[in-house]
Write a protein that binds this DNA or RNA. Sequence first.
DNA 1: ACCTGAACACCGTTCAAGT
DNA 2: ACCTGAACACCGTTCAAGT
Lengths: 237, 237
Amino acid sequence: MEARVAEQSSKRRVTLTRESILEAALRLCSPEGGGQLTFSRLGKELGADPTAVYRHFRDKDELVLALTDLTVQEGMELSRQALPDGPSDDWRAWLTVTAQSVRASYLARPALAVLAAARTTASPAETHSVEQLITVLHRAGLPVIEAAECYRALLDMTLAMTQYTAAFSILDRSAQEKDEAAWAVKYGMLPEDEFPLLHQSAPRLTELFRDDDGVFALVLTTFLDGVAARIERARKA
Amino acid sequence: MEARVAEQSSKRRVTLTRESILEAALRLCSPEGGGQLTFSRLGKELGADPTAVYRHFRDKDELVLALTDLTVQEGMELSRQALPDGPSDDWRAWLTVTAQSVRASYLARPALAVLAAARTTASPAETHSVEQLITVLHRAGLPVIEAAECYRALLDMTLAMTQYTAAFSILDRSAQEKDEAAWAVKYGMLPEDEFPLLHQSAPRLTELFRDDDGVFALVLTTFLDGVAARIERARKA
DNA sequence: ACCTGAACACCGTTCAAGT
DNA sequence: ACCTGAACACCGTTCAAGT
């Protein structure tokens, strides 16, 4: 015989607010929160009926866009904390820290990153950070239009890499293990005569498989080397 | 009174094969196919009960991995057709064509790109293309380990950007329009004194919003500029 | 005004029943 | 051996009913 569960859920009416919903939703999107944002989980987290959320957000998309905005805001705050002096003359350091801050902010909620990384909200937090990014690139030496193009490339690359990592991280454990085994086992056992370079670099590649941060740092630094070359060219012209 | 639908579905047993399932699944993943891969749609496409597919694939993940493999294979074939001479001494042209071929192959099936871009199958098609990529970077002047790191960065960036574009493309029409409006309307109306550079470059940014290929070309060429700088440094050392 | 709960059209997956 | 179809535990969303 099992212990009877008391009427713990206390079917009394709960009062929701936009803020309490967003807070609960952010918790659900985190890895500890189970990493899945659904109405039923959200209802449980809030102690309310799942459909009660519809009184505050028209649909799931509206909820997701609101969460995106909070996350972008947090990312820019993180960047400001890391570099309190703001964009100094070292454009490269500032872009690196900013890209990594936005990425970190999203990766703290992988479920949101998957849903929202490709979205544009045109919120104040977003527009201000875009102006700042273009300004830094322009001051570094790029013409305005080229600075804008460069901002777009850098941001999309950062968000895309973030979504990519987040998508993998919320896969079933079994699917993740399947991929890890592919790297560790198959790539480690390739015949040396047919795959000489792969055979030689397999240990490093297997290492990188677990190191998303390392891969992103690699992509970012290579990209910024390219930006530096572009600035050099613009200065000469 | 409506016309009666004849027993068109002919509830006779259908014989499925691994190949016919994969073919039908690829069709469903394409934009014309509705852009969603589900068992019920797959059953309808095959004229069979949705659950019949389980006799040929253990679960959806197995199906997705098989589709991924076909897509990677097709991408490498596309690259070979575009550059029949293989990786000549122009490493940059070859990497550009290869990255764009893999991307094009995935973007022909956005639903698959979203599900599979971050996966590793270690299939023959995959391992051979990896060896080839590392070889090209090594011949261009990078030490083996650095060439492997560079391959990983380039491939992940390409797949991430592909997944990012695919994820947006399979969104509801309403969600896409919401984002487009954010760019076109809000970004176009920002006050010039507060957002001087954004105001100036808004037309170009709105243009880029619709131009995924353009943004990817921009990211890729900047990244490859960075690789060129890296090769230069390696040669001097 | 806002929360509840039944209902609906979907998902992936399991399993007993058919052929 | 392999396809069918009912069933289950989930999704997002709608709507009438409660308070």
